[in-house]
Design a protein around this nucleic acid. Structure first.
Lengths: 177, 177
DNA sequence: GGGTGCATGTAATGGGTTACATGATTCT
DNA sequence: AGAATCATGTAACCCATTACATGCACCC
């Protein structure tokens, strides 16, 4: 594939858990090429624009297998929403509610988007040997999004309770702007 | 607090969803100081080492409230495990199983660690006005970790099925190394 | 005397996005 | 004619971690 192709493939498949920009892809391909892990072929078929097609080499396949066997580095994923919520008592009145609602909307949209993807996948299940693995990544997304949705809904209820308690507390003294 | 204090506070409270290194903290404090959002006071009480204590200013509090009201930027979180799993059919035999097992162990440890934290929190619930918010962030962690655990367990079963199907398929032709 | 913890900071490096820069082809 | 898509790449910049560099205080 070309760098451009790769970008598109990424966007249409792994975008939910991995994404790369051109600024990463093109230099990476050059580097892989220098290391002999991929080969490049310039194509310009009959009045077409220039294309550089890359193809993995046997050495590249070996390296891929090695990488797949390496343990995953577990990074702390930063959750801006949680950081804000952590300081929730310092926030203006409806701010936390709005933030959680936004997140809930994202989770819902995500869950909806998985429907069509799942149907596409089901069709590929018999032809593509990797399809069962794609299914597993999809299941992860579904599980995570569902958990997020449930948490958001519960959290909205809790925020309402907190708000009420604050108002009740001293009949509206010192409101949060 | 001092930069050092801040680091410790972070590690003991938000480490599960947000973390900062000294390389970030010290320059940030300098910048905040230049912008008048915090003030610095040098302390050297009776035979102690030098300490620089920072304190938020009214302008800083305003800025904090502004930031809390800003919508969260939603970044694509990169999941190395899923990226590897996506190429699972190219992986050496037990590799994906090992990766998922590792993740499962992490999720379990995380869930266990939340127990004591929750008890501590319960104690602070009456004294700290922010404690209910801390509780919410904790609930998020619990929900996410529980979802991850369930997915890992299901995925391990699926991987076993895939492995069996592959072996059955042609009685061991072209095995994965 | 030596390890650990307190305390401050800078420099090197890596990873990544966005913007910039270019230009052909195809579709409307 | 103009917009969208194909296609490639570089440069500037931001964010973040790790390693480096320093040194005191306290405890064993």
């Amino acid at each position: 594939m070309s760098g451009y192709d790769i970008r598109q493939k990424i966007e249409s498949s792994t975008a939910n858990f991995w994404s790369e920009s051109f600024g990463q892809i093109y230099p990476a391909l050059k580097k892989l090429s220098n290391e002999g892990l991929v080969t490049m072929r310039e194509l310009q078929p009959e009045g077409q624009r220039l294309r550089k097609e890359y193809r993995i080499t046997p050495a590249g396949k070996v390296r891929l297998r090695e990488w797949l066997a390496e343990p995953c580095g577990l990074q702390v994923r930063r959750e801006e929403l949680l950081l804000k919520l952590f300081f929730g008592d310092k926030a203006p009145k409806g701010a936390m509610r709005a933030a959680v609602e936004q997140r809930l909307a994202v989770a819902k949209r995500e869950l909806e988007s998985y429907g069509p993807i799942e149907r596409e996948l089901a069709a590929k299940m018999l032809t593509h040997p990797a399809a069962p693995y794609w299914q597993l990544t999809l299941e992860f997304g579904k599980a995570q999004a569902a958990a997020t949705r449930a948490w958001c809904e519960q959290t909205l209820r809790e925020l309402d309770k907190l708000e009420k308690a604050k108002t009740r507390d001293k009949g509206g003294r010192r409101d949060a702007r």
